[in-house]
């Protein structure tokens, strides 16, 4: 993974726009292709050559220990029939692909997968659109308002997920929720004791609102950070050529910010796809399992029902789906690099 992250660092938008490319060249040659400058001509001594790897070592060790090992165990467990009995008696019962065939042959699994995909798409579209708009707004605001908005965004972002979810469950509480109270005051009297977690769509509405609210700051700040790197002259030039605001966005901002959009979208896809806390805490996948998404499914099957093998198989399948998406992302990245 370290290799890939370097690649992302060095790659720069292959947009092909002449005006943009010139500024990019400077950035790319400065940060990326190091051999030209900086190193002594005779080649580095051995310790110096080792330094980068030594510096990487702690991070790699932590990753292997905290992520690699559990991942390996999960994969191993997914090929076992491991329930309460086997766990207590320390029995290892390998059962080949049985957990996988059981899941892949189950209508529930595919229904949940389809639901998770739709859930992810809705969330990511909302997050990207609203986050981008807030980012653009940040760029255009005056100093004071920008500071105010930034603080508000940071507060939303800094809120621990569990705390935020708890607050949302109270906001949307049937009896004491301020949302119902407010809707009632506004004239929707039937909403006074509306039960938000009683149907699939209203429960999803609350969950999506929570996730989108919590994710906008990340996109907005990144967008704003990216926008500050666009020189003013580019906007001026575009305006001179008669471009309106929308045209400036599509022809100047989008090409320059393409890597940002790609990276952020893929990040959000992964974050939303695996969102567990919000979905589980709002209504435990209810009513009647209708808001059960893949990570919640893995947890309820694995820990809830103590069928650790089946739960692990679901987790591994989730990882495979996300890895497929990642592969697609890296393909785009690598392609762009080739074009340079």
């Amino acid at each position: 993974m370290a290799v890939h992250s370097e690649r992302v660092q060095t790659q720069s938008p292959g947009s092909g726009k002449a005006a943009v490319a010139s500024t990019d060249e400077i950035v790319a040659s400065g940060a990326g292709r190091t051999p030209k400058s900086g190193r002594p001509a005779g080649g580095p001594r051995v310790p110096a050559r080792l330094t980068p790897y030594l510096l990487l070592l702690p991070a790699v060790a932590a990753t292997v220990l905290l992520l690699g090992w559990p991942l390996l165990k999960t994969i191993l467990v997914s090929f076992q029939n491991l329930n309460k009995r086997q766990l207590i008696q320390h029995l290892t019962e390998w059962n080949g692909f049985e957990n996988y065939t059981e899941q892949l042959g189950s209508a529930d699994f595919w229904r949940i997968t389809g639901r998770t995909v739709v859930f992810t798409v809705v969330n990511v579209v909302l997050i990207m659109v609203l986050g981008t708009l807030v980012g653009l707004l940040l760029n255009r605001l005056g100093k004071k308002m920008r500071l105010t908005l930034s603080i508000a965004l940071i507060l939303a972002w800094a809120m621990p997920v569990v705390a935020a979810t708890t607050v949302f469950t109270w906001l949307f509480d049937q009896q004491f929720g301020v949302v119902n109270w407010f809707l009632d005051k506004l004239g929707w009297h039937s909403m006074l004791h509306y039960n938000w977690t009683s149907t699939q769509y209203s429960t999803f509405f609350v969950i999506i609102l929570l996730i989108v609210w919590g994710s906008i700051p990340f996109v907005a700040f990144n967008m704003y950070a990216g926008l500050t790197t666009i020189p003013k002259e580019l906007y001026e030039a575009a305006r001179m050529d008669g471009a309106g605001s929308f045209r400036v966005f599509t022809s100047v901002i989008v090409p320059i910010m393409k890597p940002f959009f790609l990276a952020t979208t893929f990040l959000e896809v992964i974050w939303v796809f695996k969102a567990f806390t919000q979905v589980y805490l709002i209504n435990k996948g209810g009513p009647e399992d209708l808001t059960r998404t893949l990570p919640v499914h893995a947890f309820l099957e694995g820990f809830g029902a103590q069928r650790f093998g089946a739960g692990s198989a679901i987790a591994v399948l989730t990882i495979v789906m996300l890895a497929t998406l990642m592969a697609y992302y890296f393909r785009i990245i690598l392609k762009q690099e080739d074009e340079l």
Binding site: S5, V8, G68, P70, T74, L87, A263, L267, G302, M326
Partner: peptide, 19 residues
């Protein structure tokens, strides 16, 4: 971009959980 990729790596592996 670098932060993003690091976050992706964390995100992926966090899906797995051990019994």
């Amino acid at each position: 971009a670098a932060v993003g990729v690091a976050a992706m790596v964390v995100g992926l592996a966090a899906c797995g959980s051990d019994g």
